[in-house]
């Protein structure tokens, strides 16, 4: 077990015993995991595990490496030419940075929602069906079913069921983001990564997304990066605080926000920097 896990276990035994996260099996686990952009080490030897079925929030000032770490989980950083990873990151028992890993399968099992709603300039239906079609589902009935269930899961079905064939770019920002969520769900992933999913939305749309996260808790392992500490406190079970590429503290959300163990965490959540 890594040091961070030990620390977290200690914390939960010591104070808040309302839920023992260590009992949940780890879904994603990192060991001395680092990410480099050229010579710059954006994520420095992080050890942590994200338990199955939980919502984990990652907070920290901008540029602290939280987004990079998130994107490392489905290897989105591969798109950046100068980027490489060190250490191991395990998903479902496999080190996903091994050479013979099928990145496409990995991304099908790890869904992602991005900072800005990035719907394709296609119809709503085609947006949702994009992933299933990639998996080779061609049967119209199956696709219809997936589209409907995903849209329902993302609580947007009632708003769009009459205009599935219209261009998705015509929807409001909040709707678009929920559509992105539905699109990610349509692939039936096990993990949902969310990279500041509400930073481009107004408060009302933000509430809706947060409610959705609450509903999806337990069905999916959710990892959410957020700038907004209140949001982390509202939606997550666990919170990780990162600073300058290092994982400073990782623990139950309530404990981290009320009784942080580290000085830097306390400074950050009380607004002394960041």
């Amino acid at each position: 077990m890594s040091a961070a896990i030990e620390m977290k276990r200690a914390s939960s035994f010591a104070g808040h015993a309302e839920e023992d996260f260590s009992l949940h099996p780890a879904h994603v686990q990192t060991e001395d995991f680092s990410v480099f952009y050229g010579n710059f080490e954006a994520v420095k030897k992080v050890n942590c595990n994200f338990p199955e079925g939980m919502v984990t929030a990652m907070i920290g000032p901008s540029g602290c490496g939280k987004s990079t770490l998130l994107r490392a989980i489905n290897r989105m950083n591969d798109l950046i030419p100068s980027c490489r990873a060190g250490g191991t990151m395990t998903f479902d028992g496999e080190n996903i940075y091994r050479k013979d890993i099928d990145v496409v399968s990995l991304r099908m099992r790890v869904g992602m929602v991005f900072q800005k709603p990035n719907v394709f300039p296609k119809s709503i239906y085609d947006n949702i069906a994009y992933g299933p079609r990639l998996q080779g589902i061609k049967n119209r009935n199956d696709l219809d079913e997936i589209v409907e269930s995903s849209l329902k899961q993302a609580a947007i079905w009632d708003e769009v069921k009459d205009r599935l064939t219209t261009n998705a770019l015509g929807m409001s920002g909040g709707q678009q983001q929920r559509l992105c969520l539905a699109r990610a769900l349509a692939v039936k992933p096990e993990i949902l990564l969310m990279d500041e999913p509400t930073s481009a939305l107004d408060p009302k749309a933000t509430t809706k997304i947060e409610d959705l996260i609450g509903q999806l808790r337990g069905q999916y392992t959710i990892i959410i990066v957020t700038h907004n500490m209140q949001q982390a406190a509202r939606v997550s079970d666990l919170t990780a605080f990162m600073y300058e590429g290092t994982l400073i503290e990782f623990g139950a959300t309530r404990q981290l926000f009320t009784r942080p163990r580290e000085k830097q965490t306390e400074d950050y959540i009380t607004g002394r920097f960041g």
Binding site: E94, D100, D102, M108, P189, G218, Q219, Y220
Partner: peptide
């Protein structure tokens, strides 16, 4: 809370021949 049953899990590891073919 038990995670919802997902579609049959895709193996993350490619077998040697798929890998070679893909490459």
């Amino acid at each position: 809370m038990k995670p919802k049953a997902h579609s049959p899990k895709r193996s993350l590891v490619m077998n040697a021949s798929t890998s070679r073919l893909r490459r």
